[in-house]
C-alpha cells in the first residue's frame, strides 16, 4: 500500500532534494579545499638570510622573553644546517604562517584560523587540545603545553619583557609573528619591519641583521626588494603550504669573515 502512495511527484521531489544535497556537500568541500588565508591589506612575510645567521640563538631568547614561553617550549628553533664553503650554517625556524596551513585545515573546532594579513592564529579558548594541528604541521612549529608555565622566565628581563599572557595547560602554541607588536605598532602609526617596536622581537634581536620582516603587498618594503634581488627558497615548497618565511641560501662569498674596507 505504501508503495502505491509513493507517487511520481514524490519521487521527483526526493530526487531533487538528493541532488541538491550532493551538490551542496560538493560545494562545501570545494570551498574548504580552496580555503586559504584571505588577502588583506598587508601580507606579512619574513626573510632569513642564512649567510648572515651565526646560530647565536638571540632570536630564540628574545622570543622566549617577549612571548613568555617556557624554556622547553620554544617557538623559534635554531638548528645546524651543514657546512657551506667551510663555514657552518644554521636554520632558524619560526612558524611559517602558511597561506594554506595544514594546522588550520585539520582543526575541527576552528581554534586555528587565518588573519586577514596572513598570520595563522590560535584561539586558546576554543582549543580542545586534540593536538591534530601539532601532528599536521610539517615544520614542527607547534609545541604543546603539558603544563601551564609557572615560575620565573629565565630570559626575562635580560632579553625583553613579556608582552602576552601565558597560555593555559592543554593547548598547543606557536609563533604568532608577534601579531601584538604589529597591531600595536600600526595603531601608533609605525611600520612593521622598519620600526623595531612594530616588528617581531626576533628580528630586532638579531645581531647580524639576518632576519628581515615586512609587507609583501608593499613593493618597496625590505622583504619585497630582497626577494626580488636574491634567490630564495621556502621550506617544503613541494607541499604547497605557501610558507611566508623565505630563506636566502648561504653564499660562501658573503660568509667571508674578513671585513672588506
Amino acid at each position: 500500500m505504501s508503495d502505491a502512495n509513493f507517487s511520481r511527484r514524490d519521487f521527483i521531489k526526493l530526487t531533487a532534494v538528493g541532488a541538491a544535497a550532493v551538490a551542496g556537500t560538493r560545494l562545501v568541500k570545494e570551498a574548504r579545499a580552496s580555503s586559504s588565508s584571505p588577502a588583506g591589506e598587508h601580507q606579512w612575510a619574513m626573510v632569513i638570510d642564512q649567510s648572515k645567521c651565526t646560530g647565536c640563538n638571540y632570536c630564540t631568547l628574545a622570543c622566549q622573553a617577549h612571548n613568555d614561553t617556557a624554556p622547553e617550549n620554544q617557538w623559534n628553533v635554531v638548528s645546524e644546517a651543514g657546512e657551506v664553503g667551510g663555514h657552518k650554517t644554521y636554520i632558524a625556524r619560526p612558524c611559517m604562517q602558511c597561506a594554506k596551513a595544514p594546522c588550520v585545515e585539520v582543526c575541527m573546532v576552528g581554534a586555528s584560523y587565518y588573519r586577514d594579513d596572513g598570520i595563522v592564529m590560535m584561539d586558546y579558548d576554543k582549543c580542545i587540545g586534540c593536538r591534530y594541528c601539532e601532528a599536521a604541521c610539517p615544520y614542527q612549529a607547534r609545541v604543546f603545553n603539558w603544563e601551564k608555565f609557572e615560575g620565573k622566565n629565565p630570559a626575562v628581563p635580560e632579553w625583553g619583557s613579556p608582552e602576552v599572557e601565558r597560555r593555559p595547560r592543554g593547548v598547543p602554541e606557536k609563533c604568532s609573528f608577534c601579531y601584538h607588536r604589529i597591531d600595536r605598532g600600526l595603531e601608533l602609526g609605525l611600520i612593521p619591519g622598519v620600526d623595531a617596536d612594530a616588528t617581531p622581537a626576533c628580528v630586532g634581536a638579531c645581531p647580524t641583521g639576518a632576519r628581515m620582516f615586512g609587507d609583501l603587498n608593499d613593493k618597496n618594503s625590505l622583504v619585497s626588494l630582497v626577494l626580488k634581488e636574491h634567490a630564495s627558497y621556502r621550506l617544503r615548497d613541494d607541499l604547497a603550504t605557501g610558507p611566508r618565511v623565505y630563506y636566502l641560501p648561504a653564499d660562501p662569498k658573503e660568509m667571508d669573515t674578513e671585513v672588506k674596507s
Partner: peptide, 19 residues
C-alpha cells in the same frame, strides 16, 4: 641568561656567534 647558552664570562658570549 640562566639555563640557556650560559654566558658566565665574556668568552662564552663570543662563542655564541663564533662557533
Amino acid at each position: 641568561v640562566e639555563g640557556f647558552a650560559t654566558t658566565e664570562d665574556a668568552s662564552s658570549l663570543c662563542q655564541n656567534c663564533h662557533k
